[in-house]
């Protein structure tokens, strides 16, 4: 008898019962509220937090796909699951690849600044007998401090292959640009040093001469450093 009424068995395969929607809805509310709480309360920070909220988003996607879209519960063979899987794979390649390439772009650029930085980063100080401008070893350390809107010392004297650290001891973030206002130059492959409050950044003095720098948003705060060969 049951063979004559195949439609009798169909409602059981029919996706989307009330319970499945309610479970899916509750789970998705939870998976939205939890990452929101984490971000607001700052229970974890930095990359851990980023990884956690991305994990919650992925979990949320799976919940919705299973409970709302009923993927994988349709007629077999499951071409739509295959299609979904390959789409997710393509997106992973596009998104992951874009981020990877753009973050490493300065390694593949040819301007002097970029190749200097590359040489510096990789410790390539000579190619076929020609100096690349990279330092073989770093010598003395110098420091410039910004505190309560003042730079000290105003002028730093240094030798080639010394390092210079910019420290920000102010209560606000500072951006240091090279050159004289309003122009912006580059030094050691950097156009701008973004200093968080209490943070610092170090450059390698790989070019001799006298160089000016100024606070990007407040050019009155300015200074210079002289590098002798």
């Amino acid at each position: 008898m049951s063979q004559e009424h195949p439609e009798d068995s169909r409602p059981k395969r029919e996706p989307g019962t009330l319970e499945s929607y309610i479970i899916g809805f509750c789970l998705s509310l939870l998976l939205t509220a939890l990452p929101y709480r984490l971000v607001v309360t700052k229970a974890v920070t930095g990359n851990t937090l980023l990884a956690t909220i991305l994990g919650f988003a992925a979990l949320q996607m799976l919940v919705q796909i299973f409970f709302f879209l009923h993927l994988g519960r349709g007629p077999k063979p499951l071409y739509n699951v295959v299609f979904f899987g390959s789409t997710v794979g393509l997106i992973a390649v596009v998104v992951g690849g874009s981020i990877f390439i753009m973050n490493h772009l300065h390694y593949n650029m040819t301007p002097t600044e970029a190749s200097n930085q590359l040489a510096q980063d990789e410790g390539i100080y000579q190619v076929e007998g020609t100096n690349t401008g990279a330092c073989q070893k770093l010598n003395a350390k110098h420091q410039v401090t910004i505190s309560s809107g003042k730079i000290s010392p105003i002028d730093t004297k240094a030798q080639l292959c010394d390092t210079l650290t910019f420290m920000n001891e102010d209560s606000a973030a500072h951006d240091i640009a090279f050159g004289t206002y309003p122009n912006q130059d580059t030094y050691d492959g950097q156009t701008k040093l973004m200093l968080r409050k209490g943070g610092g950044m170090t450059i390698t003095l790989d070019r001799s001469g006298t160089y000016q720098f100024y606070e990007h948003d407040n050019p009155k705060i300015a200074g210079s450093f002289t590098v002798s060969p």
């Binding site: 998705s28 939205t32 990452p35 929101y36 971000v39 607001v40 920070t45 930095g46 937090l49 980023l50 909220i53 991305l54 919650f56 988003a57 949320q60 996607m61 919705q64």
Partner: peptide, 14 residues
Amino acid sequence: WIFIFTIVYLRAFI
């Protein structure tokens, strides 16, 4: 939207 919420909005406050 879940991904927009996570990547655009939540991420901005990390």
